[in-house]
Amino acid sequence: MSHTAHIRSHRKPRRSASTIAMRAGVAGGVLGTLAVAASGAANAAEPVTQTFEMPTLTGDLVAQIAQSADATQQAAADYQLQAERDAAAANAAKQAKADLAEAKQKAEAARKKAAETARKAAAERASRDSARDTLSASASTATQASTSTATGSAAAVIAFVKAQIGDAYVSGGTGPNSWDCSGLVQAAFKQVGIDLPRVSQDQSVAGTQVSLSNLQPGDILYWGSAGSAYHVAVYVGDGMFVGAQNPSTGVVMKPLSYDPPSGAVRML
C-alpha cells in the first residue's frame, strides 16, 4: 500500500457532463438575453417600416363590385320612384277632396238658386192670377157702361183697330195690311188727330196713367214698366183689347185675362 494512499488528492475533481451542459445553457441564456436587449435598443433607436401587401383585384371581384353598385343604384331609383308615386297619390287624394267640397258647394248653391227661382215664379204666377181675377171682375162690372160710353174719338179709335183684326204682324210694320204693336196704336190715334210716339216705350208715358181697375174704351194698355214697355194695345171695352200680338197670331182681339197688362195711359 502506498504511503500516500490515505491522503486526499489535491487535483480538482472531474466535472460531470451534466454539470458542464447546465453551465453552458446558463451561459447561452445570458448571452441570448444580452442579444435581445441589444436588439431592442437598436429597435428603439431606429424605426421599423412595415409593408402590407394589398390584395389583387381579380376580374370576378371587379364584376361583383360593379354588380353591387348597380344594385344599390337601382334600389335608390326604386325608392325615389315609390316616393314620387306616394306623393302623387297624396296630392291626388287632396285634390279630389277639394273638388268634392267644391262640387258640394256648387250643388248647394244651385239648389238654393233653383228654390229661389221656383219661389219667385210661384209668386209671379200668384200675382198674375190675382191681376187676372181683378181685371175680370172689373170688366164684368163695367161691361155695359164701357160699351155704351165708347163714343166720339174713342169709338173711332176702337173701330179702326177692330177693322185690322186678321192683319199680319211684321216688326216695324205701320200698315196698311201689316203692323207691329206700336205701329197699330199710332195709326189708330192718328185717325182722331193725335200724334203718338212711334215706339212702345214712349207710348206708355204719352198720356195720363190710369188704374187697370178703372179702364175706359180707347185707353192704351202696356206691358212692362212705364217708360220701358215692350208691348202696347188698345182697350176696346167689355174686358177686351185689340193688338198686334206676334207673328203667329197677327192682329187679334183677346180678353184681358189672356195676358194681363202692366198698366194703362189715357189719351182721350
Rank of each mutant, 00 (worst) to 15 (best):
A69S: 14
Q216G: 04
S178I: 09
V199M: 09
K113F: 08
R15I: 03
A38I: 05
T4S: 12
D259K: 05
Y235E: 06
H10R: 15
K113A: 15
G172P: 07
G193V: 02
G207T: 03
G40Q: 14
A163L: 03
S138Y: 11
H231E: 00
A188T: 04
V205T: 13
G207A: 07
M267D: 04
N177G: 12
C181S: 12
S2W: 07
V62S: 13
S257V: 04
A42K: 12
L135G: 10
A44S: 11
E102D: 10
R111Y: 07
V205C: 00
V242G: 07
V252I: 11
S248N: 12
T58H: 06
S9H: 10
D167T: 03
G25V: 15
A206P: 04
M54H: 11
L196Y: 00
S225K: 13
K162C: 07
L100D: 12
A98R: 05
V242Q: 05
M240A: 09
E102L: 10
Q144W: 09
D259S: 13
A229I: 01
F52M: 10
A75R: 04
G250L: 05
L212D: 06
F52I: 11
D219S: 03
P13W: 07
E116W: 06
R15F: 01
E46V: 14
Y222A: 01
W179S: 10
T174W: 03
D70N: 13
I194F: 05
T147N: 11
V157D: 04
T4P: 00
S182Q: 03
Q105F: 02
A131M: 15
M240S: 05
A83T: 14
A27D: 03
M240H: 08
A76H: 06
Y222R: 01
G172L: 05
A206N: 00
K97G: 15
A21P: 00
G250E: 02
Q164G: 07
V251R: 01
S127F: 04
A137E: 11
G173A: 10
T174F: 02
A226S: 14
Y79I: 13
A66S: 14
T151L: 06
I165A: 02
V234R: 01
P260M: 07
S257E: 05
Q201N: 08
M22F: 14
A87I: 04
G250F: 02
C181F: 01
S182D: 05
V170P: 07
D238C: 00
A69E: 13
Q74F: 08
L215C: 03
G32P: 00
I7G: 06
D180C: 09
G193I: 04
G172C: 08
V36S: 09
A206E: 05
S178D: 14
A83S: 15
K106L: 13
A101D: 08
V210Y: 00
